[in-house]
Design a protein around this nucleic acid. Structure first.
Lengths: 127, 127
DNA sequence: CTGTGTGCAAAGGGTTTGCAAGTAC
DNA sequence: GTACTTGCAAACCCTTTGCACACAG
């Protein structure tokens, strides 16, 4: 079972940033946008806690960096429906969450637990 | 334009390993399977060169690690068709290349250049 | 008061680079 | 001989952890 959570300024600040952002944000992004001073480790732990608690989901870019975005409705703790895909723009570096989910037809016997789908290219705004 | 390539034992050894493997391999995997002694940096550069030259493609796992696999036919230098998806087994840690390609319907104006699709779970062999 | 949250500092792990020596052609 | 390759060593970047103190409930 999960630990109890407390409300703190930092947590709410981070959540507010995530909620207000259309794109998924890296830890560094969050760090820069946060107006409350906070340690790297704190942000790291907070983001991970959000993922654990089903508040946000993590996307790993093709560069190996983690990005975070608030979950849209369907996510529950430990059971994410984040099979929607993401678009990472090489120009503006934004990691956008796309609405559509990918359709996967896994062979027999395979148990799917998570999906990490990142498309890379140039977004509409940058062309 | 690309540099000229030379044939060396290390390069051929690495290529042989990749060709003979059904799963995509990490740099460490290659390092362990290589019978010729080779430096980390060399393997790193060789793998990257393979990707540049269109011989192999790179897949980044949900953990941020890179995996490499030989391209299947359609890949050309700088223009990969690696939109097929990959399955990363949490049990045996294998990164399998699946044959099917994902279908993506990108919004207008988006230019797709690369895809990194990794599904995570338990593979058939591990259940 | 109890246990979660935070900061500081340091380690970890994979990736990347500079430079000089080695070697394919 | 030229220029691509390799090894060594070190740097890099993001991520992660230990520990002691701060603070919400």
């Amino acid at each position: 079972m999960a630990l109890k959570r407390r409300n703190t300024e930092i947590k709410e600040g981070i959540l507010h940033i995530l909620t207000g952002s259309k794109a998924a944000l890296s830890q560094t992004d969050v760090e820069e946008q946060l107006n409350v001073p906070a340690d790297r480790a704190t942000i790291f732990r907070t983001l991970n806690r959000f993922v654990e608690d089903g508040i946000a989901h993590r996307i790993v870019s093709e560069e190996g960096k983690s990005y975070f975005a608030v979950c849209t409705g369907k996510c529950a703790s430990g059971h994410h429906h984040d099979a929607h895909y993401h678009f990472h723009c090489l120009e503006c570096r934004k990691m956008e969450c796309m609405k559509d989910e990918i359709q996967v037809k896994l062979p027999k016997g395979y148990k799917l637990m998570q999906a990490n789908v990142v498309l890379t290219g140039i977004c509409a705004a940058c062309r």
